[in-house]
């Protein structure tokens, strides 16, 4: 699967660091906190009064049965849904809602439960779109291309190539993503999110529908991202084995409420959590 790489290149991508979103928050301090957030659609309550925080540098898992409000929670964090109540504090700035383009500009990137790649574009172009917020040349420079716009584009191309190396997808660089198998599409989507050099990476079921081997690969990438780039990660996952292995802290949702929060082994002993997963009736 690995395309042969010159050693010099390999070293270069190992040295590659994500520096686009420096925020001066030390490892272990709170990067993002949601407080008393509630979200409803019409009369349907998706999230009820949830609070939790994500610390810089950790891998935070959000788990819960289907329909617990996990994806809605991610949507609130990156500004796609706007909660009716509560506040979101990101990098010390408190607000009642995020705007999705703002969230992207301030270093929140994500992947999606049902792959949301740009089907008509190649792997390379898909990952390049991840850097849109980092590219600054205006339309007039772009129209001329040769000169500043091209120079900028090539710099970003180099960064993207590091990510392509990192994810080991060199061989599909120019393939339209629509033609790729599911597992690779998931990986390209991770690449697109990584290309933004995010401070906070949201992963919505990164391993759904994968076989054991693919799950192991994906877990390794997630741990490597966290380790090599120091990226804070919040992920939704159903595979408890994976969650227990790779996450630092876990928050458990059920019917839009928080029923547990803490380190994996502690949460797995929590009676409410066990009930929720075994389907004890709510009344």
């Amino acid at each position: 699967m690995n395309a042969p790489l010159k050693t010099a290149d390999l070293r270069a991508s190992e040295r590659f660091q994500m520096t686009a979103h420096q925020d001066g928050i030390a490892k272990g301090e709170t990067l993002l906190a949601v407080e008393n957030v509630s979200l409803s659609f019409g009369g349907v309550k998706a999230i009820t009064n949830i609070s939790f925080d994500i610390r810089k540098g950790e891998i935070r898992a959000i788990i819960g049965p289907n329909g617990a409000g996990k994806t809605s929670m991610l949507n609130v964090i990156n500004g796609f849904y706007h909660p009716q109540e509560g506040t979101i504090t990101y990098r010390g700035e408190k607000r009642s809602q995020m705007r999705s383009t703002d969230a992207a500009r301030q270093g929140i990137a994500r992947t999606f439960q049902n792959i949301a790649l740009f089907k008509g574009m190649s792997t390379l172009d898909n990952i390049m779109t991840g850097r849109i917020t980092l590219q600054k040349r205006n339309i007039f420079w772009q129209a001329l291309w040769h000169g500043p716009a091209m120079k900028e584009d090539l710099e970003h191309r180099e960064a993207v190539e590091h990510i392509i190396d990192f994810l080991e997808i060199q061989h599909i660089r120019k393939t339209p993503v629509g033609r790729l198998p599911y597992g690779l599409q998931k990986r390209v989507e991770l690449g697109r999110a990584l290309a933004a050099e995010p401070a906070l990476l949201l992963l919505d079921e990164p391993m759904a529908g994968m076989n054991l081997e693919e799950k192991e690969d994906m877990s390794r990438f997630i741990l490597d991202v966290n380790d090599q780039f120091g990226t804070t990660i919040a992920l939704i996952e159903h595979d408890m084995g994976v969650v227990m292995d790779i996450s630092d802290r876990v928050v458990v949702l059920d019917y839009g409420r928080k029923i547990g929060d803490g380190p994996p082994d502690e949460v797995s002993q929590n009676q409410d959590v066990i009930d929720a997963y075994l389907g004890v009736s709510h009344d």
């Binding site: 500004g79 999705s100 949301a116 740009f118 089907k119 574009m121 172009d125 779109t129 917020t133």
Partner: peptide
């Protein structure tokens, strides 16, 4: 790229910062 992203999957594009 931002045009094509808008064409292929507008919601994802918006979340990517387009």
């Amino acid at each position: 790229r931002s045009w094509m992203a808008m064409r292929d999957m507008d919601i994802a594009a918006e979340i990517m910062g387009v």
